[in-house]
Each structure stands twice: as C-alpha cells, then as structure tokens.
Amino acid sequence: MFNPLRKRLALLALAASTLAALAADKPNVVILATGGTIAGAGASTLNSASYQAAKVPVDKLILSVPELAKVAQVRGEQVSQIASESFTNDKLLALGKRVAALAKQADVDGIVVTHGTDTLEETAYFLNLTVRTDKPIVLVGSMRPGTALSADGALNLYNAVVVAGSPDARAKGVLVTLNDQIDSGRDVSKQINIKTDAFSSQWGALGMVVEGRNYWFRAPIKRHTAQSEFDVEQISQLAPVEIVYSYGNVPASLYEAAAAGGAKAIIHAGTGNGSVADRAVPTLRKLRQQGVQIIRSARVAGGFVLRNAEQPDDQYDWVVAHDLNPQKARILASVALAQGRSSQDLQRIFWEY
C-alpha cells in the first residue's frame, strides 16, 4: 500500500546521505584569522588605501565568501585581530604552535592563515622553517579592504582554501596566495604598497590558481617544514636579532646600540652586495669578538650576497644571508640562535634554508 509519509522520509534520508557523501569528499580546511587588511573596513567603497585593518571577525569573513562551501568544509578560529606590523616574536610562536597542533589532527587536511600584508612574508617564512608537516599551509591577505570597490580579499581567500585543500599542494612548504599567484613563503616579498599585485619573488611564482584549479610550474628546493631541523613545538623563545639599515653616512653607533640592547645577532642590511662602510667595519669586528653574530644581507630587492666578496667574511667570522632579504634573515637567525650556533653552523643554515 502506497504510504506518502514513508516515501517522503525515504527521500529525506537519501538526500541526507547524499549530502553527507558530498561533504565527505571535500577536504577539511581550518582558517586561522590574525587580522590585517583582509579583515579591514573603510569609511566608503572608495577607500581602498585608507581604512581600518583588523575589524571583521573570522566567522563573518568566511560567510562573506559562500563559494568556500563548494570546495571545502571550512571552519575558522580567531587567533588574533591586529594589523600585521604589530606582530611580535611571541605572537609568531603562538601562531606557529597552533598551526603545528592542527596539522597533527587527522580531521585537518590543510590550514589557511589570514594575515596583514606588511609582515606576511616574515610569518610565512617562520612557519616554513618551524612547522614540521607535509600538509598545505597557506597564508593569504589582501591589498584592499572588503568594503572597497574591486576588493581582492574574497578571491584571494577562496584561492587559499582551494590550495590548502589540494593534495597537489602537499610537501611544497608554506605557500602564499595573492593576486591568483601561488608563491613560496620563503621566496615571496611585498614589493609595493598600493597595488593588488604587491607580492612577488625574484625566482618566480610556484604556480597559479585559475577558476579553482591549481597550475604548478616549479617546486621549492630549500629545506622546509617536514624536512626542517627546527620545530616550533620545541622553541620557547626566539633569539633577539636586530636589523641595521645601511646608507651613506651611516654611523657605527647604530650597531653598538643594537648590541647594547641585547641582540644575539645583527643583520646588516647593506648596500649592493651587502657592502659595509669602512667606518663600520671596526665596530662590527669588535662586536663579533664579543659574541654577537654579524650577518650581511642587502637592502636591494634582488640578487644575493656573495661570501668573501666586498668583505673577507672568513677572516672576520661573519655570515652572509645569501638571497634572504633583511627581514627574512632576521627570522632565520632568530630561529637558529634560539638554540645557540657557531658562525660556521649558522652559515650552513643560511645556505640550506
């Protein structure tokens, strides 16, 4: 005998099982929100460069991009709510430990970190060095607040979730997705402050995301994540490292002030090939003899610092940062020196990472 109620219940059960099956096929992605422009708001739709960062909470950020539900099962956590220029070593460690804990969970396939663009490259490199996992970790930000005309944050976030949930993004280290590009967290840096294509790497992007599909063109060669000798869960405090920016007429007293403030290493952001002014050489040699590591980086946007070129690094017992810019050299030195290193071991680390 025909029973419409029983038929309706059967159809509902079938629909529920179908939805469950569809959900099961989608990757589980956790979004950790830290603030920044991607969570910012302006006074009007015309405010694309003047606005308040870190205003929109993670739940509203996720709801503003309903397309996320089509590519992943997404949940969010509010780790912090700040503009990224206010990131400290303590905040880096707290974020890194949370990312590492999530990466160990069987029900997490990938992690997205929303972040302000000012120091996004530093956080990406820190996680690349210290979170020991093959699972995709993707940092994302935006150059315009969500309230602006032609806001870039929604698509950037969508692309980040796509990448974080993709099996083909595994074992590639920490990634950064902005402006449709997929960059290595090690290589990428912010090059301009008023364009949506603000981030690039002198060695080129790893790939692109186009209409929800990843296209890969190269892979990172330096040590990272699961192959790293560093582990954020074993680090209780980062070593104090300072950057001194060189320029014509730079006084040697800046280096002395950094050392007096407790720096275990000084990143010399030199001109050209990490050049050091003649009047600063005696001071830097003295500081090295006192136990402060001297690391030559360069303030120029591209290239890399050659060892024993411009300065006799072997003779002075200095380290060169290779192709790392000053801010990333600071991150690596802070991580490495948290456990104490000789200058020879520190140089090895700069070559490998």
Rank of each mutant, 00 (worst) to 15 (best):
S166D: 13
S166P: 01
S166I: 00
D168T: 14
D168M: 11
D168Y: 02
D168C: 06
R170K: 13
A171K: 09
K172N: 10
G173S: 03
G173I: 04
G173H: 08
G173W: 02
V176Q: 01
V176F: 01
V176C: 03
L178K: 06
N179G: 02
N179W: 11
D180Y: 13
D180M: 08
D183L: 15
S184N: 02
G185V: 03
D187H: 09
D187C: 02
S189W: 12
K190Y: 01
I194D: 10
K195P: 00
T196C: 00
D197K: 07
D197H: 09
D197S: 13
A198H: 02
F199S: 07
F199R: 03
F199H: 04
S200Q: 10
S200I: 09
S201P: 00
W203F: 14
W203V: 13
G204R: 07
A205G: 05
A205T: 10
M208Q: 14
M208E: 15
V209S: 06
V209L: 05
V209C: 08
R213M: 09
Y215D: 04
Y215S: 14
Y215W: 11
W216I: 09
F217N: 04
F217P: 00
F217C: 01
R218M: 11
R218W: 10
A219K: 12
A219C: 01
A219S: 14
P220A: 04
P220V: 07
P220T: 07
I221E: 15
I221G: 07
K222P: 04
R223M: 08
R223S: 10
T225G: 02
T225M: 11
A226L: 10
A226S: 07
Q227T: 08
D231I: 05
D231R: 03
D231T: 03
V232P: 01
E233R: 07
Q237Y: 03
Q237T: 14
A239D: 02
A239K: 05
A239P: 00
V241G: 04
V241H: 05
V241E: 04
E242N: 10
V244S: 06
V244K: 12
S246P: 02
Y247I: 10
G248H: 14
N249H: 15
V250F: 13
P251Y: 12
L254V: 09
L254H: 12
L254Q: 13
Y255P: 08
E256P: 06
A257F: 14
A259S: 12
A259Y: 11
A260R: 15
A263R: 06
A263G: 05
A263W: 12
K264G: 04
K264Q: 14
I266F: 09
I266E: 08
I266Q: 12
